[in-house]
Write a protein that binds this DNA or RNA. Structure first.
Lengths: 340, 340
DNA sequence: AATTGGCAGTCGTGATGTTTGAGTGCAAGT
DNA sequence: ACTTGCACTCAAACATCACGACTGCCAATT
């Protein structure tokens, strides 16, 4: 069991190490913080913390640095997040105001968050579960090539090309468009698949092949809406401290670019009582992100669409500040999208 | 004036330096290449090259490395690009086949190109100059918020939110949609602005404010289509050789993320007789990319849409290989988009 | 029982000096 | 025009050493 003071010692070790990137020794602790005890006592507490594997010494006779487990305890202990400075709040307001569409809102969000935290910022596009189909548009691109555009009432636009085996007749296409919209308009995406089955019946059997091709493509688009998408900004921040990533940021950059890994990680992260989910260092090892931490918070729009926004950076990061920033941005984002 | 052999010496210096990342000396040149002369003779030629500022010595008594000017001469001299290996050609085919829409084609293109070259790959979305308006869709997002979607017959989809000052009536909206499409359908983007002026006349003066808001937004969307967009892949490749960027890849990552700089650079690059445009090292200094080189080639779709595809990497890169890859990918891309 | 001061011991860091070898430039020889 | 021989330079690699920041432990103190 670790004493109360030992946890305080852990806290200052994390703080000082994050600030200085140098192993912190007992002497510098008593110098910089008013513990009211001598260095030897701190050393005793440090021995306890080392026993618990919350801190470790890079080599004999050096200061200590927090282990991943130590960071975890530190983060969990972190009860009250200091709110953002007025300047920062102001920045959120001015930065995210008057954006022209969802794409732009999310783009500005990540840029802002990466500036606030000096880390890589990530935001996930909201899922479309509760959206309804607003309009389906068919655009012939060539004699045998068709563009299918799906517009939802939440303002999402999905598009897809499809190669049609036979020639496409403009008039016929117009008929298909009309009937498709009659069938699908107003439907929840979740229910669209069933109605698509009926569409084939509306047409003469001659055209069955074309219709099923179009219907299949639409089915895929509806399904693809569940596949999430990420926007990202601030990759340059990784390169400012490559030492924090075991010397090479290559795997991290690769993981970010791949996106699939990150989406899986997002899906697995469980928010705590503050609505923030944290994943620290080796907890991400399965994703090739062994020396990085990820902080996320959920946000939601008025439709109950739900998605995540967060930051990714070295395990050695300023957790209190970054957690506060992620939470503030997530809240503002919810409000902004909720209004619409 | 530099002799014929001197240029050969320059060529092997570039080759060996790119391969080994070490200054190359006269001795290693005669060892590795069959020049049929002694090291001292090579030294003499190297002295000439140094006079011309094509190569430089990092310090007294060390081998030489090419200057930016040296790379430039090397690249210009490079007459015939060795075609890609069959394996690489095959990779292009299988990688770019059956993509579902423009977004995906371009995404796959950059991924492929970054794999072929081990550099950052970039591709610019085609401009829409010759496209015609296919359909305009208006989607109410809330009582006062509207989504405007613009679809062109080349398959591009542009969207934008707009806040309407007054309440929006569904029926009225439907009327606007119909009239807008009647006015704009089939029009070249370039001519859309004029016709938009006439749209206001179609409606009762009561609605003038709403109509002008919608018209203004559409005008912006048409104009925004000229603003280009970039897709990128392979940023991790930068991090594999940070030494090549004066120690820090931060400015490069920032420039890539910013995109505006790159688009300006793209715009200024002049293709040579091979259809390839090259910008080497200090030639990019104005863009904050002093130690990087950019290779691009134009590509075009059937509509005469034109854009660029290319790679960006350290000045010390494998020019012959990368130039061949960029050219091959650009050609394939033109063919792929031309077919559609 | 908790805390403290003292002290020996460990080990990374940085300063200093030395050697080694790759590479140059030049001048005289072929 | 090219080559050989030679003196010279300089970065990199290595070894040595003194320094100082720590720790761990123990006996003394409160």
């Amino acid at each position: 069991m670790v004493s109360e003071r030992s946890l305080d010692v852990l806290r200052v070790i994390v703080q000082d190490y994050v600030a200085s990137r140098e192993p912190v020794g007992s002497k510098s602790i008593v110098e910089r913080h008013a513990f009211g005890v001598s260095a030897a006592t701190i050393r005793h507490d440090m021995a306890l913390l080392e026993e618990e594997e919350l801190i470790a010494a890079p080599h004999t006779s050096s200061g200590r640095i927090p282990t991943d487990k130590g960071y975890r305890v530190f983060v969990n202990q972190l009860a009250d997040l200091r709110p953002l400075s007025p300047v920062q709040r102001q920045a959120i307001q001015t930065f995210l105001g008057n954006a022209t569409d969802l794409d732009e809102v999310l783009l500005r969000t990540v840029r802002l968050l990466s500036q606030l935290t000096h880390q890589v910022a990530l935001v996930q596009y909201p899922t479309l579960g509760q959206s309804r189909i607003r309009h389906v548009e068919l655009v012939p691109l060539s004699a045998t090539r068709l563009l299918i555009v799906l517009i939802t009432d939440t303002g999402r636009v999905e598009q897809r090309h499809v190669d049609i085996k036979s020639q496409i007749d403009a008039e016929f296409l117009s008929e298909v468009r009309t009937k498709l919209n009659a069938r699908l308009g107003g439907l929840l995406l979740a229910h669209a698949a069933e109605s698509l089955d009926l569409v084939t019946d509306d047409f003469h059997a001659d055209h069955a092949s074309i219709i099923t091709q179009i219907a299949d493509s639409l089915r895929e688009q509806v399904a693809a809406n569940r596949v999430d998408k990420l926007v990202m900004a601030g990759a340059a921040n990784l390169a400012t401290t490559p030492e924090d990533f075991g010397g090479s940021i290559v795997p991290v950059l690769e993981a970010i670019e791949e996106q699939v890994m990150l989406l899986r990680l997002f899906a697995e992260m469980e928010p705590d009582q503050r609505g923030l989910a944290t994943s620290i260092g080796s907890e991400n090892a399965a994703f090739g992100l062994g020396e990085t931490s990820v902080l996320t918070s959920g946000y939601s729009s008025s439709r109950g669409e739900f998605a995540r926004v967060g930051v990714l950076g070295p395990t050695r990061m300023d957790y209190p500040n970054n957690m506060a920033a992620v939470r503030a941005v997530a809240r503002y984002l919810s409000r902004l999208l909720g209004e619409e």
